[in-house]
Design a protein around this nucleic acid. Structure first.
Lengths: 347, 347
DNA sequence: TTGTACGCGTTATCAA
DNA sequence: TTGATAACGCGTACAA
């Protein structure tokens, strides 16, 4: 049961040297003076005994774990896997491991995980979840614990953060719909408890105002989560109203997909009778029926930049800019129709 | 910079007790006899000083990390997030954390991560990746290191494993297509370096044989990965042949999606001119254009069962059955057509 | 070039 | 009921 672990001491004994010598051989930097003979002997016996260093003991001693923690709101949201991959790529290439935590959109779970990550002494934390109580972040800040906000804004201006230009993306989306001739544009907004949800809704409203379109509050519906199901429920409230919209902007792709389902139920074909735009350009967006017009977010790059920023911070490298804002551009696909087509519906 | 960590010793000193007493107060089981007064005092000072236990030191001492490692081939594959969630749910509820590793379908990376996980002394490992060299697994087995195979077969019969009944699922898929009147059924197989790829191809072939359909090798194409892109390339080889199929079975949903793209390029509309069936019933499968007919795999349950099995093993609980085989049933949606419709194509 | 001694932060065991 | 001690496995000044 309790296989006696092969330690550095066992190797030392077997090789006829002192444990510290083994340590030096195994992870000493080049400058170290070591007799090639002993080095060979140690290396040989180490592999013969199947020695595995204990990351635990090393971390305890070094006070570094070479591990990053990451808080993700919901791994089911296809936006995140590519981001995670970007983080992992970078972390890996710089010698760090990643501990991923799915907060399930629950703030208790966020706090719990945050505690766990700190107890495990990860060297830094990536926070992609949005419901994070500000107090938790304030605590990190106060303790000078390295962290970076991913795809979400933060109150404090000098927090490390990598975000996407919501304003830019939303504006392009609304402009596109208006250019197509839409006037009654429905808004399926994200939870207003999140920065992202707030920003995208505000941007959409202001873009419409700029076009001189007055906002019909019956056409704005706030979803309780960034999920397809929540989008469906929110969209129903808009689509089954007295005067339904001819287009819908979903604050992310899942919400848009939920709206699509609701539209079908309402007997509206997309894009013939309803134009639809999402946000994120999640993987496989072009395979939906119809292919989703959406705002592209450079997900992998977002992960890469976040991890780089965090690691620089951890290793005390100079950081050029604390806050990266990534461009977001519209990608037009089949889910938005020319105005003439949509107009048919009234006919 | 180097914020001096608050240790159990600091708390002890401040509370006027011995460190071991602090330890007892903090994680002693109920049976322990402790003066309520001291307990209060310790608790108070601990929280006053903002004490955080060091999971590192505890693990070193306890020789337990309460951490599980998980190897996933590619987090971009939508099959996995729900499985991961299942694992996480279970792990969390039983007091374990999860370290997720994305192997990127690379066997070097698999080995590297496996090494890291063992160095970090995770208490057990979930292996959902498929390219794992058998030698690595043999090593785990030899060292009696707790592990469970998820959604992939293993050579040794007594390995812990949770798999899906590929035979059942594939048979239902092929039966469905044949019942629809299809005779020329194309097979976009998964990599034959994986158990899953092998099993599903074999099952498909045997199901067709059972129906008395002779296998046209020009209709079988092996993809080099379980990805949409690989499926696309593999399907092209089938679709642009002399006599293309009237239906395609993809060994998983991403392959099927790739086939769909290739079909479009070949000028074949789905399902009118080509029926399509996938495998896994990945999230959002019903939103594709057309909605994907596919074999449902209980992904969340797979994660839950895997984690339970592993944790039971770790904690020495009796395990009823080492190998769980989950049912896989076809879910018919819009991507398969009645024979009459498909027949039109020849006309 | 290699050995010695100590500490990283805990907890189990034994003694008081 | 609480204190003392040792050990978990490793890395690093310092001494030799």
């Amino acid at each position: 049961m309790t296989e006696p672990r092969v330690t550095i001491i066992d190797v030392a004994r077997a090789a006829g040297v002192h444990p510290s010598t083994v340590s030096r051989v195994l992870n000493g930097r080049g400058e170290l003076a070591l007799l090639p003979a002993t080095r060979q002997r140690v290396l040989a016996t180490a592999s013969r005994l199947g020695y595995r260093p204990s990351a635990l003991a090393r971390s305890l001693r070094l006070r570094r774990t070479f591990t990053l923690g990451m808080l993700v709101p919901n791994i089911d949201n296809p936006l995140f896997p590519p981001i995670i991959k970007g983080v992992e790529d970078t972390a890996h290439s710089r010698g760090y491991n990643l501990v991923l935590c799915n907060t399930e959109d629950s703030s208790e779970r966020e706090d719990a995980y945050l505690r766990v990550l700190r107890e495990r002494q990860v060297d830094g934390i990536l926070i992609a979840s949005s419901f994070m109580a500000d107090s938790s972040i304030a605590e990190l800040r106060r303790d000078r614990f390295p962290f970076v906000l991913v795809n979400r804004g933060g109150r404090a201006a000098d927090d490390l953060a990598v975000v996407v230009d919501n304003q830019m993306g939303v504006t392009e989306a609304i402009d596109h719909l208006v250019a197509l001739g839409h006037v009654r544009v429905g808004l399926v907004a994200g939870p207003q408890t999140t920065m992202t949800g707030q920003q995208r809704l505000a941007a959409a409203k202001s873009a419409m105002r700029r076009h001189g379109i007055r906002l019909d509050t019956a056409l704005v519906s706030v979803a309780e989560a960034f999920s397809q199901e929540a989008g469906y429920r929110a969209a129903r409230r808009i689509l089954f109203g007295v005067q339904p919209p001819t287009a819908i902007f979903g604050a992310n792709d899942l919400l848009a997909l939920g709206a699509l389902r609701a539209a079908r139920e309402a007997g509206l074909e997309c894009p013939e009778q309803l134009s639809l735009v999402g946000f994120n350009d999640m993987p496989l967006a072009e395979f939906f029926g119809p292919p989703l017009t959406t705002v592209h977010v450079p997900q992998h790059e977002m992960g890469v930049r976040s991890a780089s920023l965090l690691i620089s911070q951890i290793e005390g490298e100079p950081v050029e800019t604390k806050r990266a804002v990534l461009d977001a551009h519209l990608v037009v696909r089949g889910s938005t129709a020319a105005p003439a087509l949509v107009a048919q519906r009234s006919a």
